[in-house]
Design a binder for these strands. Structure first.
Length: 239
DNA sequence: ACAGTGATTGGCT
DNA sequence: GCCAATCACTGTG
């Protein structure tokens, strides 16, 4: 059921007629998820986030007041449990200025820099220091702006399926960086996660679990199946 | 498709 | 000083 026809048009089939509180700055057909959704255990949240939609309302150009919605449907996540999890930045409850968002209320964005040049986006869940890494997404709205962001420092233009198929690629495409660290995703219009339209809903059986990527140092935690993705989905980063 | 490699810097020991 | 929850490019199959 992960397959859908037609696909990649910049369209949105509305489930809800209006965003909450009748705000006119948000995308009209994307209903934001709240505290009751994010307050689940880390692995449960990692699975439940599949099929949900990341929404970014940004300025069209720097200096311009014109607003633009970028959105992408989450297709791959990883759970980082904190505590015993040797791959987690909050292993053994370690708290630093960098990872403070991991300990904030469920639904807080944890955005950190990696390899000196990229960003990764996580969502805090229930559980001390636990968070879900967003690894890949299917671009929905604002494709041309995303392509511009992703192609800027490259020789060739980026294909649609490669706009968001990696944790730092999706941050680049959706303009997620340090200034969004510790954002409360359950409030505000510039950055949130929304319920998917009917045709984007996930069938439980289409979820695959595999070991997490890039954590060879984590000993017995390296191979635990804490990565989740939609089966046969072309927007996933690593099959 | 897959393997090897360089880029580049903040955060932590 | 070391290294990372990565990416892009190149060469090979």
């Amino acid at each position: 059921m992960a397959k859908r026809k037609g696909s990649s048009k910049e369209s949105c089939e509305c489930v809800e007629s209006k965003s909450p509180k009748g705000s006119d700055s948000g995308h009209p057909c994307l209903k934001r998820l709240g505290n009751e959704f994010f307050g689940q255990s880390c692995t449960e949240l990692a699975k439940q986030l599949l099929g949900k939609v990341i929404v970014r309302n940004v300025c069209e150009d720097s200096g311009s007041a014109k607003m633009l919605t970028l959105s992408a449907r989450i297709v791959e996540t990883e759970a980082y449990l904190g505590g015993e999890d040797k791959a987690s930045h909050s292993h053994k409850g370690k708290k630093t200025e960098r990872n403070r968002a991991m300990f904030m209320s469920p639904g807080t964005a944890y955005v950190y820099s990696i390899y000196g040049m990229y960003w990764c986006f996580n969502v805090s869940s229930a559980g001390e220091g636990a968070a879900v890494l967003i690894r890949a997404a299917e671009p929905l709205d604002g494709l041309e702006t995303m392509r511009k962001e992703r192609s800027a420092r490259r020789k060739t233009s980026v294909k649609t399926k490669e706009l968001c198929n990696g944790p730092s690629k999706l941050c680049q495409a959706l303009r997620i960086c340090k200034q969004l660290d510790r954002t409360d995703l359950t409030a505000g219009e510039q950055f949130y996660i929304a319920e998917a339209a009917d045709r984007l809903q996930v069938d439980e059986q289409t979820i695959v679990s595999k070991p997490r990527v890039g954590i060879a140092y984590a000993e017995e935690w390296t191979d635990k199946p804490l990565r989740f993705f939609l089966a046969n989905n072309v927007f996933v980063s690593v099959k």
